[in-house]
Design a protein around this nucleic acid. Structure first.
Lengths: 338, 338
DNA sequence: ATGAAAGCGCTAACAG
DNA sequence: CTGTTAGCGCTTTCAT
């Protein structure tokens, strides 16, 4: 509160009426005379009155703030999701407090603590890459704080979740590569404790099975997201006697890095190796060859999750709700052979 | 507040002491007996006591929250800056509330209003592309809310600012192109009411002058950031009789889009046209040719701005402070001719 | 239609 | 070292 912010008390005093009446007038309460209401609002405007949110929050035990925990803002997927969250939240009169776990469990736990102690009215969460337990979230649930997961969900918790069909899209992507004539498709997998990673891997495996293509263990590598790792597993895959003729990468940037390495090796894409990325970044259209990828409606997921959360907050009804947001395969030159 | 959160009152009652003593014990106040302090903390732990931040905030008139207004989180520069902000803020016990202006003045004004009414302790701002006035910020300043601008600053306001040397780096980048033999360097300019855009343009102009290269108006285009616009001005530049032999793009993505178009036209980069981007995205290393660019230490700018803000908050001393964060030219294949 | 009064949970000045 | 008291600014019940 700076020097001389005016309060309802000031307004009441100068108008010679009570605080309660002023409060009622300002909140458009029904039983307050038109005349008084007018005078109050007029003076409020003149005095540049701004309600003290802190006082109201304490009284109402409600902050009109949503807490968001995401892995990283520099991850474009989450940056876009945040856009959707903020749009819905703001237009419903809610503020948003964003925390980043930096892909670590520890920070995720801290963030949750922070947001809970800030008394947010609800939580929107996409778990970190490390998260292999759910007790911290169970704690929040026990405290009756509405919680909605999106994208990186924790299936074992009975809360609402907005997710994308990682199994389906991965099946579809793999089958696309097969249709382009690939027989040995390298697959870059994410951490196996993540629901999404498991589904993606399963989609790949099922697609191979459905098309009678043998699963070759050495074609499946595990990304560890460390610097230089893309280069490392690309070498591993392509220094083998039998090289891959297709790649299902873990994201677009790493797909481009792999392509870059392969082109240096003199391999032609897609003729020698067909490549499929993940995330459909803008850049996919501006590289040579243009990069096939998978588009996730990040913004829409943010929107959907927030809508569910707001509904739960206002209805105080926390029954589990699951919403599927469909992903889409975008075929470009890097995987088109015919 | 959920069902049955315990308060200092509960602790006081079960321990048969007063609320004030409990409060003091919990806040590690000096004059409270070791014994009492121990008992209080023990019970607090057992009862899973969580202080009600809302009450404390109302009492202290302080939220321990910083408000941040940035154009967009999907802009990687700002996403990184936010990382720096959060790191410093969190480790100082502050929360961060992030708002996006979506590059519009109207939303920026709304955001400011929201953050002020949320009683944030201070503000970190990078203005929108549209912002050509400063009265809304002046309003906040008049209310004694500490404010620090970073990157996209408003020079006319006497508040602290963290900025990068857009003039210098632009001069340097242009001179680099000249040294590579470019005589007709196309320049993509940003909105002229932005301090950064003006400086960048001036750096370009001065570098030409310093090297006795005539300024050609038709080589300077104004980006409007609309879909298809990059394609439009690239055509404009290269359908002319005298084509550019160098490009200083407005960011890396648009540089890549331009390169993509030029390659389709059969032009060789850097031989026919040398290209310099802006932002030094990861992708610069994975395209062909690799893209020369300019690196802005976004994270560091966030860190610096937050440090200044926190100092001002704690010292209540708002004298203007200016901090320059140096950018760096990263030369890669797209602009290297020798 | 309005006012008086209580209270949200905490901190801090003052008194002892 | 501890307790009493007041108060942050607002909403809301209960009277009138």
């Amino acid at each position: 509160m700076s020097k001389s912010d005016s309060t309802i008390r000031d307004i009441a005093r100068t108008l010679g009426i009570s605080k309660s009446t002023v409060s009622r007038a300002l909140n458009n309460h029904y039983d307050v005379s038109q005349e008084t209401a007018r005078k109050v609002k007029e003076l409020a405007l003149k005095m540049d009155y701004q309600p003290n949110i802190l006082a109201r929050q304490l009284k109402l035990q409600r902050t009109n703030t949503l807490g968001v925990i995401i892995p990283e803002t520099i991850n474009r997927f989450f940056a876009k999701a945040v856009g959707g969250i903020q749009e819905v939240a703001n237009s419903a009169g809610y503020n948003v407090m964003i925390c980043q776990s930096n892909e670590t469990l520890t920070l995720e736990q801290n963030n949750l603590q922070t947001l809970m102690s800030s008394k947010v009215d609800g939580l929107l969460v996409s778990v970190s890459r490390q998260t292999d337990r759910s007790d911290h979230f169970q704690y929040a649930i026990n405290k009756d704080i509405p919680l909605v997961f999106f994208d990186r969900i924790l299936e074992e918790l009975a809360v609402s979740q907005v997710y994308s069909d990682n199994f389906d899209i991965s099946f579809q992507g793999t089958e696309h590569l097969i249709q382009q004539g690939c027989k040995r498709i390298a697959f870059v997998a994410g951490p196996s404790h993540l629901f999404n990673s498991r589904n993606r891997l399963n989609g790949y495996l099922e697609a191979l099975k459905a098309n009678n293509i043998p699963v070759v263990e050495s074609l499946i590598v595990q990304a560890n997201y460390q610097a230089g790792h893309v280069q490392q597993y690309t070498r591993y895959l392509f220094d083998a006697k039998e090289k891959p003729d297709g790649i299902f990468a873990i994201n677009d940037i790493s797909a481009l890095e792999m392509m870059h390495i392969l082109k240096m090796k003199g391999l032609h894409i897609p003729r020698d190796v067909a490549v499929l990325g993940f995330n459909n970044e803008v850049i996919c259209d501006f590289v040579e060859p243009t990069l096939s990828s998978i588009e996730h409606p990040a913004f829409d997921m943010g929107v959907a999750a927030t809508r569910i959360l707001l509904k739960q907050i206002s209805s105080k009804e926390f029954t589990q709700q699951k919403e599927l947001i469909k992903s889409r395969l975008v075929v470009r030159e890097s995987s088109r052979r015919y």
